[in-house]
Design a protein around this nucleic acid. Structure first.
Lengths: 220, 220
DNA sequence: ATCCGCCTCCGCCGTGCGGGGGAGTGCCGG
DNA sequence: CCGGCACTCCCCCGCACGGCGGAGGCGGAT
């Protein structure tokens, strides 16, 4: 039942006390083994390169090279890179996005229960699962807001009108749109007028704003 | 050491075989207890209301009421709602965003290892941790793209110019901006001209586009 | 003391833009 | 068969817009 090969973990945090605490928590588990520690980002990269751990617990705030950059370097430079769990103190830390961007496997709060910590380490070591706290909900909520119900006018636009609106949002003048669409300038004016009416805009600027707000330009 | 109260789990999936498999996996763990099953979203809501579980494993695709809507209803209607882990088959499922939006505590793939599954259940039951597969990386990457390096001109704008650009992006005419800022129309024209020059735009529409593209309106 | 950036304003001028009409063509569906 | 819709194009008009040049005050930096 017990895997003979323990999960090898490296700790990266500038505060010695935090490292000690983490080590104490993880060492209590028979299937976890702390194989290295680092106090700076640069050190973390070196230790990981040397120890080849399965999981890295990486603090975001560290002198010289921060945890994000260190994560980036580790994942970029190694063949079989470890799973990196970014650790931070505050929930509304904007680092979550950075952590995700650079390919961190997870994101944990320092205030998390020890149980959650060891559980997280086991999880990222064994599967392609990411761990994220409530902050991610904010991200998702924002995304949901951006992709919310498109206004009714989007569906009412005819093919030509949509095309014209797209060109308007590209910053083209009526004459340029006419040239690109192979029609007369007067025709474009008609379409623009229709777009303005349907978007309830009084000028092309407001129409373009409406297009952006509605996420009308998705699919570029 | 062992908590006497097991984690109560409800399974919601339209395929009987999946439910059986999940039940088998979870029942093998002494600290987990499957207290109910549901084959539709509506059923899931009813079962949860009755059983008050700690965790719900919710399939996204279900007849009548899908898992997302069911999650929404459960979290909206109950006082002490359970943690809901949304389960799906495919990784690039757009449901991740929906799951996050409606407040699901986690997101798991059916192809995940049994170990990961039980680990996930324990984790969401005990802590405020979210579980997400690689699909979230795409979300983050998109967010990173949207929040990429702001163009140089953003920093070059003076206070007044920024204010004017913000109003332009609000769809106001020069006269309206002048009124709102308590200055003369000529002054606004000057600022607009500066903005156009710095944003390399030839008209206000292009300037507004630049503002949107640069994420200049963040903080609204 | 000097310079420079920012903010404030003033004119003039050309034009792209938007509002208001009208009008002809095809196509689809009742 | 005819009405409705989308697409095409035309006219005129008023004006907000943007380009140009100029000017004065005010504060911080050198």
């Amino acid at each position: 039942m017990t895997g003979p090969a323990p999960i090898r973990v490296v700790l990266a945090d500038d505060e010695r006390m935090v490292r000690t605490a983490l080590r104490a928590i993880l060492s209590a588990e028979p299937d976890l083994e702390v194989v290295g520690e680092a106090a700076t980002g640069a050190e973390a990269v070196a230790v990981v390169r040397e120890q080849r751990p399965d999981v890295v617990l990486m603090d975001v705030r560290m002198p010289e090279v921060d945890g994000i950059r260190a994560t980036e370097q580790i994942l970029a430079g190694l063949a079989g890179p470890p799973r990196i769990v970014v650790v931070t103190t505050f929930e509304n830390d904007s680092y979550v996005y950075d952590a995700l961007r650079v390919g961190a496997a997870g994101f944990l709060l320092k205030r998390a229960e020890p149980d959650a910590l060891v559980g997280a380490v086991r999880l990222v070591a064994r599967s392609d699962t990411l761990l994220f706290p409530a902050a991610v909900r904010a991200l998702a909520a924002e995304h949901a807001r951006a992709g919310r119900t498109p206004p009714a006018w989007v569906g009412r636009l005819t093919g030509r009108e949509s095309e014209v609106l797209r060109h308007m949002a590209g910053g083209l003048t009526n004459a340029e749109i006419a040239r690109r669409m192979g029609v007369g300038a007067a025709t474009v004016k008609t379409h623009v007028a229709s777009v303005l009416a349907k978007t309830d805009a009084r000028d092309r600027t407001q129409a373009v704003i409406a297009a952006y707000e509605a996420g009308f330009l998705r699919g570029t």
